[in-house]
Simulated scan of single mutants.
Amino acid sequence: MNGVSVVIPMFDEARHIIRTLQAARAAADAAGVACELIVVDNGSHDGGPALAEAAGARVLHHPGLHIGALRNRGAAAARYEGLAFLDADIEVPLDWLKQWISRNERGDADVLALACDTPAQAPWYACAWQRRSLPATAELRPNWLPSANLCLTREAFEATGGFDEQLRTGEDKDLGLRLHHLGARQLMLKSPTVLHWGYEGSWHEWFGKELWRQGSHWQLMNNQGHPRWRLLRFPLLALSNWLPTLLALSAALGGLLPLALISGSLSTVPALLLSLRQSARQRDLSLTLQLWILHWLRLHLAGGAFLLSLFNWTARRPARG
């Protein structure tokens, strides 16, 4: 491998971009590999682009594009055969690239990502929501990896045609599934972790992000010219979860308290099952209770976002990376 090009999409990330760039540069130095830092700006209104240039990054300006298009523009400008996609609010550990290069050279992984965690000062709901995705084992071999930190060869990336530029969200899952179809070996390591500094600092931000994230299920399902019906499982579960909630509200308004209690309890069952499934990996009862609340809220948000997406309306949010 002649070097690694680190591609970082960005929108209004002046508060995080220096930390992200410095950590990526330090990881390249620790790995002893040539590295270029490419920031693809989506029309920032803060001083992020100037800060990135001062920190030694090459800044490309492409306002108004979806996140996949931003990453593709950065990859097209990259000069090295190793590609690393990094979100602008992610701090990588020193051995990030060392892990990737050694795994790739010994034929252990074509695509690699490190598990993502939150800084200690993040609020409980942001910490719990991030911890739900931590793998149970030291190594996990899924059929797709998130793109908050994603390392792969240019050859593997170009074999897929790159990220789908029409997707508002879910572009990493779409790319990963196509890589899986091509036989790529994808690996997530539980340790070391990267830190997500762009955690949700308020409930308003958490609700907004989840509504936006859930807005591409229908589009993702119909991508690549043939429907992927399995991707409908979660939005259909979310829609079905509305039924006992609406029944509970109707019963409560009608003075039927026993029916309201029964229906309300039924509406929490899917969220409980999801929380048990994810928290079992961490063996933490407090995490189970926290995720139970968050999954109940998310299911209702997901159902609404899916219905809105059928009418081509989704929460608008600039591609941040």
Rank of each mutant, 00 (worst) to 15 (best):
A23F: 02
L177S: 00
Q166W: 03
A248I: 04
R320D: 07
A113C: 15
V7R: 00
R131E: 05
G225Y: 07
R15C: 14
A271Y: 09
T245A: 14
W203Y: 10
W197I: 00
P227S: 12
L276P: 02
E139L: 10
R228D: 03
S275L: 11
A76R: 12
G254I: 01
H62I: 09
A30T: 10
A27I: 01
Q166Y: 02
A271Q: 12
K190D: 15
L253T: 01
Y199V: 00
E210P: 00
M10T: 15
H180A: 15
W100P: 04
L94F: 06
W296R: 14
Q166V: 02
T20N: 07
N104R: 15
A50V: 06
Y125K: 03
S250R: 12
S191W: 14
T153Y: 02
L179I: 03
A52D: 08
L140C: 11
S240L: 13
G43P: 06
L65C: 14
H204I: 10
L195R: 11
N42T: 06
H196N: 06
L301T: 06
E81Q: 15
A260I: 10
A24Y: 13
A156E: 14
N2S: 15
A159P: 02
F85W: 09
P93C: 07
S240F: 10
R281C: 11
G56D: 06
A138P: 04
D89L: 10
A238P: 01
A28C: 07
L237I: 11
A76E: 14
V92C: 15
Q282M: 12
W242L: 07
G201L: 00
A30M: 09
V4C: 13
V59W: 06
